[in-house]
């Protein structure tokens, strides 16, 4: 187990290194940088430009700049915002924004699971009958509706049509107004949750149908166990591994920040921070946001992999192959 964890950790760090180099190079290749953003492209004052580049460390050769950023990352220093939040450390900004994204992800995933489980189970148990057909169509709709469309539709309905204060987005901290906090996160959470709910419920359906055909389900029936008992212990329990993989993917995707939805609903999360950073050409901010998002994804994947062992005792890490 310890060896397995060490190996996974090492691979995670390696992945982060490679992506960090990738992001860093890409951002340097793109024309325009913080200097242009700060003094404007039209202001043609080479003296001032050179001065600014020196001050910001942008005159250093590529590898020195990269090494500086990387060194900072290892010390837990994500750099300083140059344009958007002039002089503020990026770490603090990301932490604050991630809080909003995490709250949104939590509500969204909760809604998705509350919908997906009953739907997936019902679709499997009434296979090829009405509930299955209904959920199939709804799920297809959920997967194929683009988030921007669903988001706008909800804003038009609740915000414009019903003139509800929370229907047009915005963010209120939980501590200030818990109910307002929930209402404002509700619509974007629904927007983000629909395709996750659809994917999870479809996976659950397939997984349950596969489990229903297993021999140990027949044994359970032959031992006279009631339906509820074998459906939970023999069918659902053994059907969970692939479903948890999908749930983990959803959690990872949600925690990375949702660009379009956060902007539509004016939520100060990680996704909208990234877009603002890009527009402002705030290089340190953008590269650190991306690397944090990658780190979150790697961590979520590891947690998902470790959770398999809880569901299936045959899965053990680190011993043998």
């Amino acid at each position: 187990m310890r060896a397995y964890l060490a190996k996974r950790f090492l691979f995670g760090v390696l992945t982060l290194l490679v992506t960090s180099l990738l992001i860093f190079s890409l951002l340097r290749v793109v024309p325009g940088g913080p200097v242009d953003a700060l003094i404007g492209e039209e202001w043609d004052d080479p003296e001032l430009r050179a001065q600014l580049r020196r001050d910001l460390g942008l005159d250093l050769p590529f590898h020195r700049q990269y090494a500086r950023w990387l060194g900072g990352l290892f010390r837990g220093d994500l750099g300083v915002s140059l344009v958007l939040y002039r002089g503020e450390p990026v770490g603090g900004i990301i932490l604050e924004r991630f809080g909003v994204t995490a709250q949104l992800a939590f509500i969204s995933l909760t809604i998705a699971l509350l919908v997906a489980f009953p739907a997936g189970i019902a679709a499997a148990l009434w296979k090829e009958r009405l509930p299955d057909h209904v959920f199939r169509i709804v799920a297809l709709g959920g997967i194929s509706t683009p988030n921007f469309f669903l988001g706008i539709a909800l804003i038009v309905m609740f915000g414009v049509g019903l003139r509800l204060k929370w229907g047009v987005g915005g963010y209120v901290p939980f501590g200030e107004d818990p109910w307002g906090w929930f209402l404002r996160l509700l619509l974007p959470a629904i927007v983000l949750g629909t395709d996750h709910a659809a994917t999870i419920s479809r996976m659950l359906r397939a997984s349950i149908l596969e489990a229903l055909g297993r021999n140990h389900v027949l044994t359970a029936k032959a031992m006279g166990l009631p339906r509820k008992e074998f459906l939970i212990q023999d069918v659902l329990r053994t059907a969970m591994v692939p479903v948890v993989t999908v749930i983990g993917n959803s959690a990872g995707a949600l925690l990375d920040g949702a660009v379009i939805t956060e902007i539509l609903f004016r939520l100060p999360g990680l996704g909208s921070l990234l877009v603002q950073g890009v527009y402002a050409r705030d290089l340190p901010l953008v590269q650190s946001v991306v690397i944090v998002a990658v780190g979150i994804r790697i961590a979520v994947n590891l947690i998902v992999d470790l959770s398999y062992a809880l569901m299936d005792p045959r899965i053990r890490y680190g011993r043998g192959q």
Partner: peptide, 8 residues
């Protein structure tokens, strides 16, 4: 093997 529940 398949007649017994692997998770119990």
């Amino acid at each position: 093997l398949s007649s017994l529940n692997p998770t119990l």
